[in-house]
Deep mutational scan, measured.
Amino acid sequence: NQASVVANQLIPINTALTLVAMRSEVVTPVGIPAEDIPRLVSMQVNRAVPLGTTLMPDMVKGYA
């Protein structure tokens, strides 16, 4: 099972992602792969992401 990126805190809309804001977890459905965490740092989310939410490619500006 592949680990996905999960919000480690509430991430407000247009907030730049940080290492502290993300964690890796095996979840269903699978979201952005955990190995992409370094690439996600400083990218912005295009919606509010609640704690525990799996990050999907369409939630991160410039990711997809």
Results as ranks from 00 to 15, higher is better:
Met56Ser: 06
Gly52Gln: 03
Gly62Cys: 08
Asn14Ile: 05
Val20Asp: 15
Ala7Leu: 05
Met59Val: 06
Thr53Asp: 09
Pro12Ser: 08
Pro29Ile: 06
Ala21Gln: 13
Val26Trp: 12
Val6His: 00
Thr28Lys: 10
Val41Gln: 05
Pro50Gln: 11
Val26Asp: 07
Leu51Ser: 14
Gln2Thr: 12
Val27Lys: 07
Val60His: 02
Tyr63Val: 01
Ala7Arg: 00
Asp58His: 13
Leu10Ile: 10
Leu51Met: 15
Pro33Asn: 08
Thr53Lys: 09
Asn1Tyr: 14
Thr15Met: 11
Gln44Cys: 09
Pro50Gly: 11
Leu19Trp: 12
Leu19Asp: 05
Pro12Cys: 07
Asn46Ala: 14
Lys61Arg: 15
Asp58Met: 11
Asn8Ala: 14
Ser42Cys: 09
Arg39Pro: 02
Val49Arg: 01
Thr54Gly: 03
Arg39Ser: 10
Val49Ser: 02
Ser4Met: 01
Arg47Val: 15
Tyr63Gln: 03
Asn46Gln: 08
Asn1Phe: 13
Arg39Thr: 10
Thr28Glu: 12
Ser42Phe: 08
Leu19Met: 12
Tyr63Glu: 03
Ala16Ser: 11
Val41Asp: 03
Val45Met: 00
Arg39Glu: 07
Ala3Gln: 09
Val45Thr: 09
Arg23Asn: 06
Asp58Lys: 07
Ile32Thr: 01
Thr18Tyr: 06
Val6Ile: 10
Asn14Phe: 10
Ser42Gly: 15
Ala16Ile: 12
Asn8Leu: 03
Ala34Trp: 06
Ser4Tyr: 02
Ala64Arg: 07
Leu19Tyr: 11
Met56Lys: 07
Ala7Glu: 02
Tyr63Arg: 00
Met43Glu: 03
Gln9Tyr: 10
Glu35Cys: 07
Met59Pro: 01
Gln44Tyr: 13
Thr15Asn: 08
Met59Phe: 11
Gly62Lys: 07
Gly62Thr: 05
Met56Gly: 04
Thr54Asp: 01
Met43Tyr: 09
Ile13Glu: 15
Asp36Cys: 10
Gly62Asp: 12
Thr18Ile: 06
Val49Gly: 03
Leu40Tyr: 02
Ala48Asn: 15
Val45Arg: 00
Pro50Met: 12
Pro50Glu: 13
Ala64Gly: 13
Pro38Lys: 12
Ile11Tyr: 02
Val26Lys: 09
Asn8Gly: 09
Glu35Met: 11
Lys61Met: 14
Val20Arg: 15
Ala16Arg: 12
Thr28Val: 13
Gly31Cys: 04
Ser42Pro: 01
Ile37Ser: 01
Val60Met: 04
Gly52Val: 01
Ala64Lys: 08
Val41Cys: 06
Pro12Lys: 09
Ala16Asn: 10
Val41Tyr: 02
Arg39His: 10
Leu10Glu: 15
Glu35His: 12
Met59Cys: 05
Pro29Ala: 03
Met56Ala: 05
Ala21Thr: 09
Pro38Thr: 10
Val41Ala: 04
Leu19Ile: 09
Met43Trp: 06
Asn14Arg: 07
Pro50His: 11
Met22Asp: 02
Ala7Lys: 02
Val41Ser: 02
Thr15His: 13
Pro57Cys: 06
Ile32Val: 07
Ala3His: 10
Val49Tyr: 04
Asn46Ile: 12
Met59Ser: 00
Thr18Val: 07
Leu55Ile: 14
Met22Arg: 00
Ala16Lys: 14
Ala34Cys: 07
Leu19Lys: 09
Gln9Cys: 07
Leu40Thr: 00
Leu19Val: 09
Asn8Thr: 13
Thr54Met: 02
Ala7Phe: 03
Leu19Cys: 07
Arg23His: 04
Arg39Trp: 11
Pro57Ser: 07
Glu35Leu: 11
Pro33Asp: 05
Met59Thr: 03
Leu51His: 11
Asn1Pro: 14
Ala48Val: 14
Glu25Val: 09
Ile13Thr: 10
Val26Leu: 12
Val27Ala: 05
Val60Tyr: 01
Val26Ala: 08
Ser4Gln: 01
Thr28Cys: 08
Ile37Pro: 01
Pro12Gln: 10
Ile13Asp: 10
Thr15Val: 09
Leu51Lys: 15
Glu35Ser: 14
Pro29Met: 04
Gly52Lys: 00
Thr18Pro: 03
Thr15Cys: 09
Thr18Glu: 09
Ala48Cys: 10
Ala34Tyr: 06
Val49Gln: 03
Ser4Lys: 00
Pro38Trp: 14
Thr54Ala: 05
Gln9Ile: 12
Asn46Gly: 07
Val20Asn: 15
Asp36Thr: 06
Arg23Phe: 05
Gly31Asn: 01
Glu25Phe: 06
Ala3Asp: 05
Ala34Gln: 05
Val27Asp: 02
Ser4Pro: 01
Gln9Glu: 11
Asp58Phe: 15
Thr53Ser: 14
Val6Tyr: 00
Arg39Gln: 10
Leu51Thr: 14
Pro50Lys: 10
Glu35Pro: 06
Arg47Glu: 09
Ile32Trp: 00
Ser24Val: 13
Leu55Lys: 00
Asp58Asn: 12
Pro29Gln: 05
Arg39Met: 15
Glu25Met: 13
Asn8Val: 07
Pro38Met: 11
Thr28Pro: 00
Ala7Tyr: 01
Val6Gly: 01
Asn14Met: 08
Asn8Cys: 07
Pro33Ser: 09
Ala34Asp: 06
Pro33Thr: 07
Val26Phe: 11
Gln44Thr: 14
Val49Asp: 05
Thr54Phe: 03
Val30Met: 15
Asn46Pro: 03
Pro33Tyr: 07
Leu51Asn: 11
Glu35Asp: 13
Ser24His: 07
Ile32Asn: 02
Gln44Trp: 10
Asn46Asp: 07
Gln2Met: 14
Gly62Glu: 09
Ala34Thr: 05
Asn46Arg: 09
Ala21Arg: 08
Glu25Trp: 08
Pro33Gln: 06
Ala7Ile: 06
Met56Gln: 13
Asn14Ser: 06
Leu40Ile: 11
Val30Glu: 10
Ala64Pro: 12
Val20Glu: 15
Thr15Ile: 06
Val30Tyr: 12
Asp58Gln: 12
Ala7Val: 09
Gly62Tyr: 07
Ser24Pro: 13
Val60Thr: 03
Asn46Lys: 10
Asp58Ile: 09
Ile37Met: 13
Pro33Arg: 09
Asp58Tyr: 15
Glu35Gln: 13
Pro29Arg: 02
Val6Met: 03
Leu55Glu: 02
Pro12Trp: 05
Val6Cys: 05
Leu17Asn: 01
Asn8Tyr: 04
Thr53Gly: 07
Pro12Asn: 09
Pro50Ser: 11
Leu19Gly: 05
Asn1Ser: 14
Thr53Pro: 01
Val27Thr: 11
Asn46Ser: 14
Thr54Tyr: 02
Met22His: 01
Glu35Ala: 15
Val6Asn: 03
Thr53His: 11
Val27Gln: 02
Ala3Thr: 08
Ser4Asn: 01
Gly52Ala: 04
Ala3Ile: 06
Pro29Cys: 05
Thr28Arg: 10
Ala34Arg: 04
Ile32Ala: 00
Gln2Val: 14
Ala16Phe: 15
Arg47Asp: 05
Ala34Lys: 05
Pro38Ala: 09
Lys61Glu: 13
Leu55Arg: 02
Val49His: 04
Val27Asn: 03
Leu55Cys: 04
Gln9Asn: 08
Val20Ala: 15
Asp58Leu: 08
Asn1Met: 15
Ile32Met: 02
Val41Leu: 09
Leu51Ile: 15
Ile37Thr: 05
Ser4Cys: 04
Ser24Ala: 15
Met22Ile: 08
Met43Val: 04
Pro12Thr: 07
Leu40Asp: 04
Met22Asn: 00
Asn14His: 11
Val45His: 01
Val5Ile: 11
Val26Gln: 09
Gly31Leu: 02
Leu17Ala: 00
Ala34Ser: 10
Leu55Ser: 03
Leu40Lys: 04
Leu17Phe: 01
Ile32Tyr: 01
Val60Ser: 02
Thr15Trp: 10
Met43Leu: 15
Val60Pro: 01
Gly52Leu: 05
Met59Ile: 04
Met43Lys: 09
Pro57Arg: 08
Val30Ser: 12
Gly52Met: 04
Leu19Thr: 07
Asn8Ile: 06
Gly52Ser: 05
Pro33His: 09
Pro57Gly: 07
Ala64Asp: 14
Thr15Lys: 08
Ala16Pro: 12
Met59Gly: 01
Glu25Ile: 06
Leu10Cys: 10
Pro12Ala: 10
Arg47Leu: 07
Pro38His: 14
Pro29Glu: 04
Val20Trp: 14
Pro38Val: 12
Val26Ile: 13
Val20Gln: 15
Val30Cys: 09
Gln2Asp: 08
Val49Lys: 01
Val5Glu: 02
Thr28Ser: 12
Leu19Glu: 08
Val30Asp: 07
Val30His: 14
Leu55Val: 08
Lys61Ser: 10
Glu35Asn: 11
Val60Ala: 01
Val20Ile: 14
Leu17Thr: 02
Arg47Lys: 09
Asp58Pro: 06
Gly31Arg: 01
Gly52His: 07
Asn46Val: 13
Asp36Arg: 09
Ile13Phe: 10
Tyr63Gly: 02
Arg39Ala: 10
Val30Gly: 10
Ala48Phe: 10
Ala48Arg: 14
Ala3Cys: 08
Arg47Met: 11
Pro12Glu: 11
Asn8Met: 06
Lys61Asp: 12
Met22Thr: 03
Leu40Val: 04
Ala64Trp: 11
Thr18Ser: 12
Pro38Tyr: 13
Val5Phe: 02
Val26Thr: 10
Ser24Met: 08
Asp36His: 15
Ser42Tyr: 09
Val45Cys: 05
Pro33Gly: 04
Thr28Ala: 13
